[in-house]
Design a binder for these strands. Structure first.
Length: 948
RNA sequence: GCCGGAGUGGCGGAAUUGGUAUACGCGCACGACUCAAAAUCGUGUCUCGAAAGGGAUGAGGGUUCAAGUCCCUCCUCCGGCACCA
């Protein structure tokens, strides 16, 4: 047997696979298709990262398995090559970006090929190739024609170092995502893409795709859909429009809060505000633009006038506040301190009125309303009495009902709730000397069947906390004595489970916390004719009543699509004085990037393209007059927004992809990528795809049927890998030392695929040893010779369990446990004297997607002429899955005391007698009576003994 | 602050969803082979205990015959959003 020479073997099979084109996807195939996709890399000068290897290997395993399962597989690769690092390098060195890109992609390609990924290299694409970006420009023009691309003067985030406008999502904590420089604000005309027009579908259509739940949640949060109402408040002859999700709380409005931006706009159109107000606005706006924008405290200033609440004509003061944002909703809100945490905090600080309009509601599901019985409304109290001596709470145990309650009662005549409570305490318990601690918030509505009165009750209950002063008691009536017994219960035993009150959860949280706003839905009070309505129905009713309208808003903003840089797709528009912005005619696409001397953006913020007059000056395609090209370029996200479509037909010159190809391949069946792309790339490409779908240009409304995500690989010690720290692992070195198969296997074995894991070069030796053992196993192979059948059937049971395990682990991306299962199988193989060749080949097939080179070589050594990659995936033979012996764990009182071996599916009584016969177990059972036995067939038996 | 995810040996991590906690791998220790080393193979490796046994899955409580797994309270770490009305 030869030695395991990984570099020889790996090069050999990479060449063979390429020669035989085994990984090229086939058009017009009868097989079912599978389209597996990884995010195409940005070819940086640093070379391939081990993180790329992790994601690519995972999808490589999946696609290799699919091929073996008989699918026509598309697993393509390309380069997302526009972007800043290349351009910055060009500025520094004067080298052409295209040249830099060529060098970097050559290096990346070499690296990827050295790992043996089963990419279809014949479809390789590059976003910086004019043949590719012709279609990026073409798609942009379709959007322009549909009015989705528009120009807008706006304050942009400007990075003074990179000299580039940044999208909101590229600003992290007030700094440039790339270089960390503090971002400035600048006024600039920008091209925008109206992604907000698709906001609703981007949200709701998430229901139709199979993305990891956290990916969906993140996208939904990002889109930030919220349904509410716009309501207008009158101020003299003007109106202030507010947006609220809680129109049901309109009766609880005690002030209006407007953003400084809105207030400033009033000043701009002539509002005579005081100097103090002007200064407040100026300062607040300045604070907000400052780096970081971390508002510590809510502040505000009275605007000096009132507005009219449209629902009841009440005057409410208008405040200018720092906690309302100009670009959210209408830039103004109604202040409802009773039902909004922020308004509550603000009202407390500035002594504004707090007026409840909604109360919590609980239905007692243990004593629900009985149909046919009368429904009686009652205002009542709930008295919670603490004995400070032992911190116990007074409770009533009802004699005729299975209830445990606090002291309860109705409010009579014109007494206050506290007076009513004190009276009830005396009547029901006799305790005379009690002291009010505090009223626990507002009333709570509960609905239950009062069996002792034979009525359905809707109660508005006021919970009140008292303290016992001393234990002096007077007599209570015989009626009361007959009804319940008084007792004291530990505070810690007062829970929603131990008490009958359905509103117990609310009461407990009010005891724990002094005072807060009630922010949930409930039942309306103090709301005129809307009293008694529930929040959900009241929202629409009140909005209608005041002539407002229900609207939906989104956090998602339109996409700033212009960059004032060189290394991007030129935006294919021409500006003509007479005709405005005119698309470059289709026949003139692509608008190619011209050669320039200097790649630096100009200091006035224009792209370097603007300096090339021969390129800029053109004739207008519409009127033939003098015109200028748009000199802004597209952001890096453009080329990646549709690249998965191009793979289906990467060389097409007449369309971005042939309809037939799109029909066959889309949607992408499985897309794996980084979590960091969830709200940017994935959302952007979904938007482009939906647009293309609306234009009838693609056959599906969603691009990716399934999206999963890998965890980061951290440097040793758990910190981020970074070039500056010098802790980056170079895959080339690992491949030279241990081989590509070891690298692949290690990255799959290192830990859960979706979790961040620190790299450990030390640990690679483990998988390398494993592969060497597999290699040596060849010498044990006996072709069909008979091997002791008993040991063999045990081995085959294990083998077929492994087929199941590895297959399902791959589907669930639990690669680490799949590898460990194969290691267990290997350890078992080593114990065997001989190995049946069939069984060994099954093992090789299971391992082949993980370590394709070594398995292909061994397969070849075993005498096969065809390639392992083309072999069918092993199928579990259920007849071999039948175990004959089960070891049943014996527990006594829940503690493991031994084990008995019995035939599978043995009855409990048989197992029991075996247990009782077992000497080692007898000492545990002896003398004691077995009160109960729990038997889980083939697994466990637990004997519960008397006593103990 | 809110929403997610997680806390298990010296380390990376397993645990058929409530049924033998610590699989698999690394590391470490001892042994075999060797003049020696490497490689390889074997044995051991949560903890207290001489043993019999006991105790451990971030902390505390609960449910259960049985809890890493379910419920409550708290602590820590990692991600995302951050006054979104």
């Amino acid at each position: 047997m030869k030695n395991y020479d990984h570099s020889k073997i790996e090069k050999k099979w990479q060449k063979e696979w390429a020669k035989e084109k085994v990984f090229e996807a086939i058009e017009n195939s009868d097989k079912p298709k599978f389209y597996g996709l990884i995010e195409f890399p940005y070819p940086s000068g640093a070379g391939l990262h081990v993180g790329h290897v992790r994601s690519n290997t995972a999808m490589d395993i999946i696609t290799r398995k699919r091929r073996m399962e008989g699918f026509n597989v598309l697993y393509p690769i390309g380069w997302d090559a526009f972007g800043l690092p290349t351009e910055n390098y060009a500025i520094k060195t004067g080298k052409q970006p295209a040249l830099i890109t060529k060098e970097n992609t050559d290096n990346f390609r070499r690296q990827l090929q050295s790992i043996g990924f089963s990419f279809d290299w014949s479809r390789e694409i590059n976003t910086t190739d004019p043949k590719y970006y012709k279609w990026t420009q073409w798609i942009f023009l379709q959007m322009f024609k549909q009015g989705l691309a528009y120009k807008k003067k706006m304050t942009i985030n400007w990075c003074p170092k990179d000299k580039i406008g940044l999208a909101n999502e590229e600003v992290i904590a007030g700094c440039c995502e790339r270089c960390g420089t503090a971002v400035e604000k600048r006024e600039k005309e920008q091209w925008m893409l109206a992604i907000t027009k698709y906001a609703d579908r981007l949200d709701t259509d998430l229901d139709t795709v199979d993305y990891l739940p956290q990916i969906k949640t993140q996208q939904r949060n990002w889109i930030g859909k919220s349904e509410g109402a716009e309501i207008e408040f009158q101020v003299d002859k003007e109106k202030i429009k507010v947006f609220t999700t809680r129109p049901d709380t309109l009766f609880g409005v005690t002030f209006l809060a407007v953003s400084p931006e809105l207030a400033q706009s009033w000043i701009d159109i002539g509002w005579q505000a005081s100097e103090t107000i002007k200064q407040y606005i100026k300062k607040t706006l300045a604070d907000r633009l400052a780096d970081g924008f971390d508002m510590k405290e809510k502040t505000g200033i009275s605007a000096g006038f009132d507005a009219i609440n449209p629902v009841n004509g009440e005057k409410v003061p208008v405040w200018i506040v720092n906690y309302v944002l100009g670009d959210v909703g209408t830039g103004a809100i109604m202040g409802v301190p009773a039902h909004d945490e922020r308004d509550f905090e603000f009202a407390k600080k500035y002594n504004l009125e707090i007026k409840p309009a909604v109360i919590p509601r609980r239905i007692d599901h243990n004593n629900p309303h009985v149909s046919g019985k009368e429904v009686i409304f009652r205002k009542g109290i709930m008295a919670i009495i603490v004995n400070p001596k032992d911190n116990k709470i007074l409770c009533l145990k009802w004699k005729k009902q299975p209830w445990t309650t606090f002291v309860m009662g109705g409010i009579e005549g014109d007494e206050t709730s506290v007076e009513a409570a004190i009276r009830e305490i005396r009547e029901e318990t006799g305790y005379k000397n009690i002291k009010l601690v505090r009223v626990l918030g507002g009333v709570i509505q509960t609905e239950f069947f009062a069996a002792h009165k034979d009525i359905n009750r809707i109660a508005h209950t006021q919970p009140i906390l008292f303290e016992l002063e001393n234990e002096e008691r007077s007599d209570v009536s015989s009626d009361e004595l007959a009804a319940y017994e008084v007792f004291w219960r530990d505070m810690k035993d007062i829970t929603p489970e131990t008490m009958t009150h359905a509103e117990m959860d609310i009461v407990l949280s009010r005891i724990a916390c002094e005072e807060k706003s009630f922010n949930e839905n409930g039942v309306l009070i103090n709301s005129g004719q809307f009293d008694g309505l529930q929040s959900e129905e009241a929202k629409k009713a009140i909005t209608d009543f005041v002539g407002g309208k229900m609207v939906t808003t989104y956090k998602l903003r339109d996409w700033v699509f212009s960059r004032q840089r060189y290394w991007g797709e030129p935006i294919p528009l021409i500006h003509c004085e007479a005709c405005g912005y005119v698309p470059v005619p289709e026949k003139d696409l692509p608008v190619e990037l011209p050669q320039v001397e200097k790649y630096e953006p100009t200091d006035n913020g224009e792209s370097p393209l603007s300096a090339i007059s021969s390129w800029v000056n053109v004739t207008c395609p519409t009127c033939g007059g003098q015109a200028k090209r748009e000199t802004d370029t597209m952001p890096q996200w453009a080329g990646s927004s549709w690249y998965y479509l191009r793979y289906t037909d990467s060389k097409n010159d007449t369309e971005f992809a042939d309809k037939k190809n799109l029909q066959h391949w889309t949607p992408v069946d499985w897309y794996n990528g980084g979590m960091e792309h969830t709200t940017l790339h994935v959302l952007y490409s979904r938007f482009w795809h939906k647009f293309l779908f609306d234009q009838g240009l693609v056959p599906t409304s969603e691009p990716y049927a399934k999206r999963t995500s890998h965890g980061l690989i951290l440097a040793e010690g758990g910190v981020k890998m970074s070039k500056s720290v010098g802790n980056v692992v170079n895959p080339d070195e690992i491949i030279t030392l241990y081989g590509a198969d070891s690298l692949r296997l290690y990255e799959m074995f290192m830990g859960p695929f979706d979790q961040a894991i620190p790299w450990s070069t030390e640990n690679i030796i483990g998988v390398r040893r494993f592969l060497e053992k597999v290699w040596r196993l060849q010498s044990k192979v006996e072709s069909q010779k008979s091997i002791k059948s008993e040991t063999n059937s045990r081995f085959e049971l294990l083998l077929h369990q492994m087929i199941q395990k590895v297959s399902s682990d791959i589907e669930g991306m639990k690669f680490n446990t799949a590898v460990s299962a194969m290691m267990i199988l290997l350890n078992e193989c080593e114990k065997q004297e001989n190995l049946n060749q069939n069984n060994f080949e099954i093992f090789l097939k299971l391992l082949s997607p993980f370590a394709p080179h070594i398995t292909e070589e061994i397969w070849n050594e075993l005498g096969h002429k065809n390639m392992l990659v083309l072999e069918p995936w092993p199928v579990t033979d259920v007849t071999k899955l039948v175990a004959t012996i089960a070891s049943v764990v014996v527990q006594v009182n829940g503690k493991v005391r031994g084990q008995v071996k019995v035939p599978v599916d043995t009855a409990e009584s048989v197992v029991m007698s075996k247990v009782q016969a077992e000497e080692t177990l007898q000492k545990w059972i002896r003398d004691k009576k077995i009160t109960k036995v729990f038997y889980v067939p083939n697994r466990l038996i637990n004997l519960v003994l008397e006593g103990d």
